[in-house]
Design a protein around this nucleic acid. Structure first.
Lengths: 408, 408
DNA sequence: GCATATTGTTAAAGAATTAAACAAAATAGT
DNA sequence: ACTATTTTGTTTAATTCTTTAACAATATGC
């Protein structure tokens, strides 16, 4: 039950119904392709004539194409299958991380066109942008046969202003108030550019995923545990952003208001207990209460190394993982109590040890969730190989074409 | 940008545009009444003919009525003003609290019809329901001149299952899995009955309020501090409920995972630091670490009493309030980081001391919010005299008539 | 080879918005 | 006092979309 905002609404016009049905049709083709007109009519609970008109428009626009005829039915005329015409245009996805920046190119349904490439992330924004421009240009050159680029999606580990395209605060990159949009827009004039926080993008990657194996939920939370903790929340099929695009910053909820110092300046943030640095430092017996416990050994020793040691039988390593797991679960419990999502997606290096830590995480969740059902909230691990951040960057570009029109 | 759910959508039909515009028109009349057809045409950016057709329908349905003619304009034919025809039907609102239960009767735009009445809340659900039925009957008898009752809205301090109408868990009432709906439905057969958690209802009361003084925001959080802490979150004009209608339970986020014991069974919940009991106990120097610190003195001594003492110059009382204020702010910071709302509404007894505690609350918020703008999130105090819970119960009944139609 | 079934198109009907013309009512200016 | 102008609200016709119904195309079963 949504209230219509009396200061910001959209009156329905003659074309509104068509607009709505058009987006539904696209969504259904995307979800069920290959699919016939008659199938769509049944799915949409309307008549075939209506579908014919809708599809004629989409064919004329080049968004949909006809393919082979199917032969599912035992009798009657064979259906002509419809597909999204996804190969006409491409999307460029960019994942900026502390050490390296990754690039992926896909068609309009997120199918990869070329191998993922990467280059070292230069700390100086100006140099970084220059390199990025060069590599995007090259990528577009290599794929001249594609008619056009629908957009560039950039994902950054930090707070972003998606309107001005500025990176407001990215501690792991050391960036503060960096304008990514202006120089890129100057370079790629007619290509729309989207910039988003990586936690939010990861959440988008799941809501817009086209996997057949998992029922896509409409209320989900993505938690990414890495150098920092990124969280994205989707409610009713929509990413929540809040007034300053900072909604979903669960990484800095306290586990203890007088606890471990956090990079954000406060104390006892969840992030301070479960970040990769915290886990590794815990193994080395570092004093986590120091502001900057980073040292040579923690810099060259990764969580993956720690997991390896734990699997090899190192009891201290396993204990460090288990303690992180407990804190991970306690924080997840807060998210579950606050959002009550249908599904939690969990990414980050530590999830490679999920088989080792799941019981500890589950116990901690149970400890703090308010009713038993909440404790049973399903958790799906998203492995790094699925590239959730890059997939999220793709969604920034491709999703608008399928989204519901703003109505009422 | 909302994703259309391919397993649950609504195809647009011939009547969809009319349906949308109808709800917009109702919303605008509700917000701007008295208002003329020509005004509506300008507000909706459509032509007057379209409005004539829409209003003819609404007049025929008895939802809108024509009133006097205005004379704003310097020239031209005078407009005939339109009003919501709110007097045909009424809504019954019920606020169940630990000690007393309150009833209010309003018309369809929430204007009070009769004085608020109340009776002691009996701990036994069966007896309670019997009394409630009797008093509702009496209320309806006293207002026989009203054509009909559009619905009964009941608000309870605890978790509710709004589908089955059960109170799952209400610690302050001592209720567990109490079915309110079935016996009431048997009694009031043709009157729709809505049951909701009080924190969520308070949030509804603000989004559906018709105050002219405050710009109604579309993203807001209502925090009610009383025996427990109730929170309701509205995003994009819609109350978030989650999978089990428990979304928004920020009261049990930890301030310290090994902190004070909470009624929920966990430790260190925000509620355990800021509930009325915690504040009063703090004044009496009670050991809050005990599971049940309630004693005679805390039972008969209310927060209002404490505020009185603080105003009279009792330094210990003021210190107790200030400490609660600090914890209140720390928890609000978490909500701000997580939701980033446009506005926070704050209710409960302690808000009567807002002038005494605001600086402490603000400082604590600043201490943990991630960027400065978040720390400046506006907070509006909702005094008890505005009856946010009863207003929320009214909204449960009256809001559906104005809500946006489900589309796409 | 005919009945049956299914797909997709076409023509006409129905229902909504939109544009244009018009009647009603009030004011300003001469 | 009278006319021109302005504004409101209605009516008529045009336009655009959904819906119904009929039909052509194409396959299978008997």
């Amino acid at each position: 039950m949504r209230k219509i905002n009396p200061r910001s609404f959209k009156t329905a016009t003659r074309g509104t119904s068509r607009e709505i049905n058009r987006q539904i049709a696209l969504t259904l083709i995307r979800a069920h392709q290959p699919v016939s007109r008659a199938d769509l009519a049944r799915l949409m609970e309307t008549n075939r004539a209506n579908i014919t008109f809708l599809i004629n428009d989409l064919l004329a626009e080049g968004l949909v194409r006809e393919g082979a005829t199917g032969n599912d039915a035992k009798r009657g005329r064979r259906p002509t299958f419809l597909y999204l015409d996804s190969q006409q245009k491409c999307a460029v996805a960019i994942d900026v991380r502390a050490t390296r920046t990754y690039l992926m190119m896909t068609d309009m349904i997120g199918q990869q066109i070329e191998n993922i490439s990467s280059f070292p992330t230069e700390p100086d924004p100006e140099k970084f942008i220059a390199t990025l421009v060069r590599i995007i240009r090259q990528l577009l050159e290599n794929n001249r046969e594609i008619a056009g680029c629908e957009g560039i999606g950039i994902v950054v580990p930090g707070m972003t202003d998606i309107k001005t395209g500025r990176v407001l605060h990215a501690p792991t990159l050391g960036w503060q108030n960096v304008d990514l949009l202006t120089p890129l827009r100057k370079e790629f004039e007619d290509i729309p550019i989207h910039i988003e926080n990586s936690g939010k993008a990861c959440a988008l990657s799941q809501i817009w995923a086209t996997r057949s194996d998992v029922h896509a939920h409409n209320d989900l939370v993505f938690v990414s545990v890495s150098d920092g903790v990124g969280v994205g929340v989707v409610i009713g099929g929509e990413l929540i952003r809040g007034r300053h695009n900072t909604a979903g910053e669960f990484g800095h909820l306290p586990l203890a208001i007088d606890g471990l110092p956090c990079s954000c300046g406060a104390n006892g943030c969840w992030e301070a207990y479960i970040s990769n640095l915290a886990t590794v430092s815990r193994y080395f017996g570092k004093n986590l209460a120091q502001r900057r416990p980073r040292a040579l050994e923690t810099a060259n020793f990764t969580v993956e190394d720690l997991i390896g040691k734990a699997r090899a039988g190192d009891a201290k390593a396993l204990a460090a993982l288990h303690l992180t797991a407990r804190y991970l679960g306690l924080g997840l419990a807060s998210i579950i109590n606050a959002i009550d999502p249908s599904q939690i997606y969990l990414g980050g290096e530590i999830t490679e040890a999920w088989d080792l830590i799941e019981p500890q995480v589950r116990d901690a969740i149970m400890e703090r969730t308010l009713i038993r059902d909440l404790g049973a909230t399903p958790i799906r691990i998203v492995p790094a190989i699925e590239y959730p951040r890059l997939r999220g960057a793709v969604a920034l570009v491709t999703a608008p074409a399928f989204a519901a029109p703003k109505v009422a």
